[in-house]
Design a protein around this nucleic acid. Structure first.
Lengths: 348, 348
DNA sequence: TTGTAAGCGTTATCAT
DNA sequence: ATGATAACGCTTACAA
């Protein structure tokens, strides 16, 4: 069997209690003693048993990320940000993939969470009341990423503003027939999608432009979906001259559809997305960039802070952090030889 | 506090031992008793304490994925496959991001692994002896994904064959000046990169074509790297007419470089990649498709099988599983109106 | 088939 | 500052 704390205690000539205190850096330990214990522990290659430690302390030293998908760009990038912060700590990361929030948000059953983790990072949760309630009922700190809900801390962009900025850009460069490619046909309680659409409508309204129902396509946040939606729009008697895709991946699909129809993005039909996907530059897609990795980082740091606090001090006041976005103009809206970058700070 | 096994035992009028046995589906439990215990447990909303269970049993019910990156397509797709298999089990998934294998493969220290997990899934491990040794020294089952090493079970494609197929395709369509964009300048012990390059060389040799050192660029498996490498190749007095990129992402970069130079992929310079990236279709990139998600799935299933076996039965014989790839021909090598798909089964 | 009870390896409370 | 010693909640021989 492995070395236990008792072995170390005997070898160092102290009690297990002292070893425990010394190794965890607690106060009230003689520097000499601590040094000796650390020395012995290292020599014996002692590693604390996490199960025993967890059982005795009641803390798991683990947090979980709950996301609809793992393989898609946005989610894997968030995950990477989370992991990045965790490297510096001693916290373990558990991952749960729960499927499309618009279809069914299969929250991992309590039994998979309770007693296993100290806190939760939930990505793109629908603002559906019950989903939040289920999670909060576990009684542990929860941080939302990429969406917000009343009463829960969150880190995200201002999606309404992002939708407005994207649409406004299309208006600015002279378009009047502006379509949108969003996720689902009807509001599904999936905040980002609904909010971005709201921003689009607001921008059109403010510019005195009409919103036509037939100019709304649904791409389900995938490349293939975006392509289908754009194809549908192109089939209209009077197609839009510009399209706002609520995500870069749907924007890519739109570009693909244009290519298939022999149309040039930017020249024939303008396309703008949201995300700042790694490959947006490659595909020359204008997009509203959000700092995705930072979203993951910030939410994780916030969660770790919560966890380091005594339970009583964990503020009941949920802080909804909104991070700024940047409109990056590329050839899909302004076909020119040079790329223009405008800094767009979102305030609220 | 939460409900404990003792509470359930009392409520059901049996001992804790019986509750434990009943709930875990062990044999030698009266069906009536089991039913009653299950009933009571559900009513009381009892969830076993993982820490206590782990401490007592010595098993963690957790496996870890160790990968260089999380956010890149290949890795997040593998991860998704792993998670997919785990959904059906009661096993938890821990994730560690360890950085570029060609630079430094920062294996999580023993202390982060020992006692925390029952098995390891290692993605794209360099075939470096010591790295493997470190991992194996933990004495738990290890499965490799996307690379292979002697004496360790693994799931991957035949990278040499993949490189050969890609290069052969370029030869078949008439190219003679064929370049390669690979990862690092020198063999780094990172198997897939080295092997794909080997396949490239073999194909050229077999066709009686010369390998020119200046036709080898290095893209470090990123889009930006691929673009730089291709730019370098284009600057040659006599640039290659075709390029084999050892990954789709580097292929994307190559396409970007061509675009920037006003050259058309497929028409002016042919490009072929390896991976079957989600966006390869969008970018019209010919590629050798590997079933990435399945790689993750298969390796996970193999690992779970190992774990379900008594320690003694875990075969010392490492099984290296090689899965077939498919060459998908697109416009980046054969600019035509229709896409041709050839099934290429790799045998060995 | 079921119960008893000894661990499993720490942490944390009291003393000292 | 350090030591004894109860928990912590479950699993698992060993008995019955």
């Amino acid at each position: 069997m492995a070395i236990t704390i008792r072995d170390v205690a005997e070898a160092a000539g102290v009690s297990t209690a002292t070893v425990s205190r010394a190794l965890r850096g607690l106060a009230h330990v003689d520097p000499q003693t601590r040094a000796r214990v650390e020395q012995v522990a290292k020599e014996m290659d002692y590693v604390v048993s996490p199960s025993a430690s967890r059982l005795a302390s009641g803390r798991t030293g683990t947090i979980a990320v709950i996301a609809p998908f793992i393989a898609r760009w946005f989610f894997s990038t968030v995950l990477s940000g989370v992991e990045n912060v965790l490297q510096g700590s001693d916290i373990d990361l558990l991952v749960f993939e729960v499927g499309d929030p618009a279809v069914q948000y299969r929250i991992p059953p309590e039994r998979r969470l309770r007693g296993r983790v100290d806190g939760l990072l939930v990505v793109s949760l629908p603002s559906d009341e019950s989903a939040v309630a289920d999670l909060l009922s576990l009684g542990m700190p929860v941080s939302l990423i990429g969406s917000a809900a009343p009463g829960v801390p969150s880190v995200s962009i201002d999606d309404v503003a992002a939708g407005r900025v994207a649409t406004q850009h299309l208006i600015n460069i002279g378009h009047e027939r502006i379509g949108i490619i969003t996720g689902q046909p009807n509001p599904t309680g999936f905040t980002p999608a609904d909010d971005r659409r709201r921003g689009y409508v607001a921008a059109l309204d403010e510019a005195g432009l009409v919103t036509r129902p037939e100019y709304e396509g649904h791409g389900y946040f995938t490349v293939a979906g975006g392509e289908q939606a754009m194809t549908g729009l192109l089939a209209l008697a009077k197609p839009p001259t510009a399209v706002f895709a609520a995500s870069d991946e749907m924007g890519f699909g739109a570009i693909r559809a244009l290519q298939r129809h022999g149309l040039r993005p930017g020249h024939d039909v303008a396309v703008v997305g949201i995300d700042g996907h790694d490959l947006a530059d490659l595909l020359d897609l204008t997009t509203v960039v959000q700092p995705v990795r930072d979203l993951g980082r910030m939410a994780t740091e916030a969660l770790l802070t919560q966890l380091s606090l005594p339970t009583a001090d964990r503020s009941q006041v949920a802080v909804a952090t909104t991070v700024p976005t940047t409109l990056v103009v590329r050839g899909s809206t302004v076909p020119s030889t040079q790329t223009v970058v405008q800094r767009q700070v979102v305030t609220r």
